[in-house]
Nucleic acid binder design. Structure first.
Lengths: 166, 166
DNA sequence: GTCTATAGTGGGATAGAC
DNA sequence: GTCTATCCCACTATAGAC
C-alpha cells in the first residue's frame, strides 16, 4: 500500500475542492491529476469517503486552531469562525453538512476542536447552543439562505450579544 | 402537459423521501412507482430539481404554519420547529441544506415562513440570529453531530434562554 | 401531440487480467 | 499497481409508436 499515493490523492482532492468546488471532487478527476485511471485509486484508498475523511480531519484541526487563537473573546471567536467558513466554503460544507464518521476520527480531535468554545462559555449546554448558532449563521450564509439585502454583520453581532451578555 | 402526472410524481417523491431517505429519491424509483420509465418523467417535469422544488415549497409552507401555531412563545416555537425537523428529517435536510431556488419560489413564501419568528422577536437581525441558531441545533441533531450522550433538551433550553431573556 | 424506448454522458464503485 | 470491462446512478437527446 503506497502511503505516498494516499497523501498525494488527499492533497490533489483538497486543491480541487477548494478551487473548483464539490463537483470537481471526482475520482476520475483526482486520478487524472495523478496520471492514472480512476479504478487504480481504489488500490490506495477505500473509496471517496476515505478521501473525504482525510479532508474532514484536516479541517477540524484547523477550526480548532482558529478558535483557540481567538479565545476567550466571544466576538473574536465568532469572527474567526465565520472567516474560516467564508475562506474555505467548499471545505466547510464538506466537513459540517453531513454525519461525522466518528469511529474513524483520531482520538480527541472532535473534543479538541470544541474545547476553546466550551471553556470560553463555561456551561456545556450553552456552549452547544452557541456552536449550533454559529454553525447555523455560517452555513446559511454559505448557502445563500438569507434574504439578498440582509445585514449579516448585524445578525452575527446579535448572536454574540445573545450569548455574551450574562 | 399532464398536470396530474406532475402532482402524482411529487406525491410519490415525498413518500419515497420520507420513508426511505434521499437515496430512494431517484427518477427510476419514482417512475417505477408510477408504472412508467424514467425518461418519460421528463415529459412531465423539467428534471429532478423540479420535483425537489415542489417538495421545498410544501415544506416551507408547513414550517410557516407550525411556527405560526406556536407563536408568540419562543420556547413553544423552538419546540415546534425541532419537532418538525425530527418528524421529517429527510425533508428538512432537503429543504434547508442547499441554496434556495428563490427565483422559482411562489411570491412571499419565504417571508411568510419567517414572519412568525420576526414578529415574536421584534428585531430583524436578532430574528435572523435566532433562526440560524434553531436551524443549527436542528441540522446538527439530524446529522448526529452532537456527542453521543449530549443533553439536547438542555442545549435547546439554553438557546431559548439566550434569545428570550431580554 | 403525447407517450415511450434506446442510446450515450459522466459520476462512484468492483472484478479480474496482466 | 495499473489496466480494461462492467454495473448502477442522474440526466439528456432523439427517434418513433399511436
Amino acid at each position: 500500500m503506497a502511503e505516498v499515493r494516499h497523501r498525494e490523492a488527499v492533497a490533489v482532492a483538497r486543491r480541487l475542492l477548494e478551487a473548483e468546488g464539490e463537483d470537481a471532487l471526482s475520482m476520475r478527476r483526482i486520478a487524472a491529476e495523478l496520471g492514472i485511471r480512476a479504478p487504480s485509486l481504489y488500490k490506495h484508498l477505500d473509496g471517496k469517503a476515505d478521501l473525504e475523511l482525510a479532508l474532514i480531519i484536516e479541517a477540524l484541526e484547523e477550526i480548532g486552531d482558529v478558535l483557540a487563537s481567538a479565545a476567550p473573546d466571544l466576538g473574536a471567536m465568532a469572527r474567526a469562525y465565520r472567516r474560516y467558513a467564508l475562506e474555505h466554503p467548499h471545505l466547510y460544507v464538506l466537513v459540517t453538512q453531513r454525519p461525522l464518521p466518528r469511529e474513524r476520527l483520531p482520538e480527541g480531535l472532535e473534543q479538541g476542536a470544541a474545547r476553546p468554545l466550551v471553556e470560553a462559555i463555561g456551561d456545556e449546554h450553552r456552549a452547544r447552543a452557541a456552536w449550533a448558532a454559529a454553525h447555523g449563521m455560517a452555513i446559511l450564509e454559505l448557502n445563500g439562505r438569507f434574504p439578498p439585502g440582509a445585514d449579516l454583520d448585524a445578525a452575527w453581532a446579535a448572536l454574540v450579544a445573545a450569548f455574551g451578555d450574562r
